[in-house]
């Protein structure tokens, strides 16, 4: 199996580093700093500002915004998605637990193709990771919008084919 490698190369200018995106990202960074730091002395705060700006500069330089701008734009809808995802995870964890603890291993390894072509790169990433996150399914390969998934049980594979997870992410993207 030699999958084709035809995805386009990242062009340097691809990142949409709009001022709005920059600002949102800066806010995220500053928040992160403040929450991590916990020391609010002028010197440390000043260094914090410096650090955030430096990080921002480096992030821009290192094509952070290539896909992450998409993430930034969906930042408001993410928590809702996470909740659904957590529910999925709990359910599938239970399934896997049962398998592992069963005295006799009963597994039906299955491979399945999922179509994520209608999603953007960020969307595909989220999709792939979500699939991997839920125990019982692992993304093996993403190629041209097609996701190759390995499932522990056949029923997981069948569930994946229902496309509702793709739709969920599509909603996240819009």
């Amino acid at each position: 199996m030699q999958p084709r490698r035809s995805q386009c190369l990242p062009s340097p200018q691809r990142g949409a580093a709009t001022p709005a995106n920059l600002f949102i990202f800066l806010v995220v960074l500053v928040l992160a700093w403040l929450l991590w730091s916990g020391i609010y002395k002028p010197v440390v705060l000043g260094l914090g500002v410096f650090s955030c700006l430096l990080t921002l500069f480096l992030a821009r330089r290192m094509v952070f915004f290539a896909q992450s701008s998409e993430l930034l734009s969906m930042i408001r809808r993410l928590p809702g998605y996470w909740l659904l995802l957590v529910k999925d995870i709990i359910v599938s964890s239970w399934n896997v637990t049962k398998i592992v603890l069963a005295p006799k291993l009963v597994i039906q390894p299955t491979m399945v193709d999922t179509d994520g072509a209608k999603l953007g790169e960020m969307g595909q990433t989220i999709l792939g990771n979500s699939i991997t996150l839920s125990p019982g399914t692992v993304t093996l390969d993403i190629d041209d919008g097609r996701l190759l998934v390995h499932c522990l049980l056949k029923k997981d594979a069948m569930a994946l084919k229902q496309d509702d997870i793709v739709d969920r992410i599509k909603a996240l993207e819009s």
Binding site: Q7, F25, L29, A32, W33, W36, S37, L47, G48, S51, C52, L54, T55, L56, L58, A59, M62, V63, F64, A66, Q67, S68, L71, E121, M122, Q124, T125, G128, N129, T139, I142
Partner: peptide
Amino acid sequence: LIPQVVGRILVPFIVLFGLY
């Protein structure tokens, strides 16, 4: 795709953490 996208998100945070 996945490592790349996740990595790109991660890099600035690692840098920020480093500075922290």
